[in-house]
Design a protein around this nucleic acid. Sequence first.
DNA 1: CGCTGATATATCGATCTGATATATCATGTT
DNA 2: AACATGATATATCAGATCGATATATCAGCG
Lengths: 231, 231
Amino acid sequence: MLDLAILGLLSEHEFHGYEIRKRLRDELGLFANISFGSLYPALSRLELSGAVIGTESSPAAPAAAPIPLTGSLGGERAALRSRRAGTVRSTTRGTKRSRKVYRITDTGRRVFEELLAGEEPVGTDEARSFGLRLAFARHLAPQARLGLLERRRDQLIRRLAADQARAAAGNDFDSYTRSLVEHTTEATQHDISWLDSLIESEKLKQAAPRTESRTPRTVGTGSAAAKGTEL
Amino acid sequence: MLDLAILGLLSEHEFHGYEIRKRLRDELGLFANISFGSLYPALSRLELSGAVIGTESSPAAPAAAPIPLTGSLGGERAALRSRRAGTVRSTTRGTKRSRKVYRITDTGRRVFEELLAGEEPVGTDEARSFGLRLAFARHLAPQARLGLLERRRDQLIRRLAADQARAAAGNDFDSYTRSLVEHTTEATQHDISWLDSLIESEKLKQAAPRTESRTPRTVGTGSAAAKGTEL
DNA sequence: CGCTGATATATCGATCTGATATATCATGTT
DNA sequence: AACATGATATATCAGATCGATATATCAGCG
């Protein structure tokens, strides 16, 4: 889960831990506020497995060139952004505090693709997981993307059936519980409608011979990934 | 969280672990499928702290009366349900497998009331937590109940602001992410409308001097007011 | 008769959360 | 100038939960 989110962010450009947390919170909003107790261990894990490389960007060591990197442009932008736009101050000293900037590796990209195209978890945080995958859906091949949407729809259909069974069986519910069950059912229905519209527009998009410009490394089609047929 | 759910269920009548899991899954639907790795440790915890008492209901010990309880009607029904309706078989041997039936204590009731009336957690599972509290809201005093609803509404208002900030800031989002953000925003708005209607009907209910019959142990604010609505 | 699936309890490792600690710097307040 | 506050930044800890797995009993099915 978190690995996917981190690699997804880092696949666009490099970040340090704190930035990752902020982006996950402010941009996606899927992880309300990733705990540092999740984030930093996850980064260590990923570094250990070779999916990312962390470069110490300490202020006390201006000796060794401050990480040239991919042309340093992405890093520069990130650093600037983290410095809260403005206050040009740079020169030599005082880069706040030593930050460890993480870069994705080729291995990491492969892991990212596997995670993204791989099996979605069922249960507790399927919603969060789906949201995350959808946010990175542009990295999926059209086929895999459609599969993602349809598997999610199936999940929701099952959930709706459960919701309705609850609503039907619960005659001894008090008014609060009944209202809760009804509201939940409606929310699920709303989710399904949304999925339907996503699926429809996705099919339209794939039917039309769109020779779109930016094709950002799609994944998922080639392999023998069990598509919707697994239920 | 789980403690509250367990105590809430047990405050109505006794259950064994497996039943608790089923009820939480089938009736409330808030915990998709409580893990046994959560449930059994939680029961042990609660037993250790004196909030519940577990009685070994082994098939080899038909001696001690199998817990009469609240007139045994509720328990009977539960037992029957768990036995999958029919096959009267009982006599001496083979009651499936030894079950440990948990009963709430007075301490447990006090803990339940504290948990229910206590601070709601912010962050990750505020939604689940609220749903759970709402399902047991009938045990709260009208004042506390209204407070619960209003605090939840405040949470959602803040969440909506965050959602809208995301939607406004995200011009570089792709269509999938944008759709996700929009859908999330709509869902939050829908939640707020729901809360509004709950709050309104709660206020109406409290304005009317309903001297209803069954007052099931309300908690929260010192005032012991009446609570109607068995609808 | 064995197979599958439901009932029932228990434990394990992994992960995630929330809290806390430590440190640097920018800003605002008095 | 002194001081507090709050953002930036990394790290670690205890506790809760999850998903998987193990074990065992029994019902229904073919």
